[in-house]
Amino acid sequence: MIDNTSAEQVSFGYQDVAPEEKTRRVGAVFSNVAAKYDVMNDAMSVGMHRLWKDRFVRRVKPRSGEAILDMAGGTGDIAFRLAAGGGSVTVADINQDMLDVGIERAVERGIDTLVWSRQDASQLTYPDKVFDAYTIAFGIRNVTDVQAGLDEAYRVLRYGGRFFCLEFSTTTWPGFKEAYDLYSHQLVPRIGQAIAGDAESYRYLVESIRRFPSMPEFEAMIRKAGFVRTKVEPILGGAVAIHSGWKA
Rank of each mutant, 00 (worst) to 15 (best):
T135Y: 00
G76A: 00
G74I: 10
A67Y: 14
L82G: 11
F80D: 08
A83T: 11
G73M: 07
K129C: 15
D97R: 15
T125E: 13
A67H: 13
G85R: 11
M98P: 10
P127E: 12
L124I: 13
R81V: 08
R59Y: 14
G85K: 10
L82F: 06
K129D: 15
M98Y: 11
D128T: 07
Y126D: 06
D112K: 05
P62N: 02
V91I: 09
D132K: 07
E66K: 09
A137V: 08
I111L: 07
G87H: 07
G110H: 07
I103T: 12
D93A: 01
D97H: 14
R105Q: 09
D93C: 11
G139I: 05
S117C: 15
F138P: 00
L124S: 05
A72F: 01
V130W: 00
G85A: 13
G110T: 12
V60Y: 10
D77I: 14
A79K: 13
V101D: 10
K61V: 15
I136E: 11
F131P: 01
L99Q: 06
F80C: 01
G86I: 12
K61D: 14
V89I: 03
R63K: 13
V91N: 00
G74P: 08
T135K: 00
P127I: 12
F138T: 06
D100S: 06
D77Y: 14
G139H: 05
I103M: 13
G74K: 02
I111M: 09
S122D: 14
G85Q: 08
M98E: 03
R81S: 00
E108I: 15
V57E: 09
L69C: 02
L114V: 00
G76V: 08
Q119L: 02
A137N: 01
G74F: 00
A121L: 07
E108Y: 13
D120K: 06
D132W: 11
V101I: 05
R105I: 11
A106Q: 02
D100T: 12
Q96Y: 04
F131C: 01
I140E: 11
V107A: 12
L114E: 05
T135R: 11
G86P: 08
L99R: 06
A83N: 04
V101R: 07
D120T: 04
D70I: 04
D77E: 15
R58D: 14
T75A: 02
K61L: 14
D93Q: 11
V60K: 00
V130C: 12
D120H: 10
D77L: 13
T90P: 01
G139Q: 03
V60G: 09
A121G: 10
A79V: 05
A84Q: 14
A106T: 09
A79W: 00
A92L: 04
V101N: 08
A121T: 04
K61F: 13
V107I: 13
I103D: 01
A92P: 10
I94D: 10
A79Q: 00
A133H: 03
A79M: 02
V89L: 07
W116G: 08
A79I: 06
D128Y: 07
G139V: 03
F131S: 04
G76Y: 06
G74L: 00
D100E: 08
M71F: 10
G139Y: 01
S117I: 14
S88C: 14
V57F: 13
V60E: 03
I78S: 05
G102H: 02
S64K: 07
S64G: 12
A137Y: 12
L82K: 05
L69A: 10
G87Q: 05
N95T: 10
G76I: 03
V89F: 08
K129L: 15
A72D: 09
Y126R: 04
F131L: 07
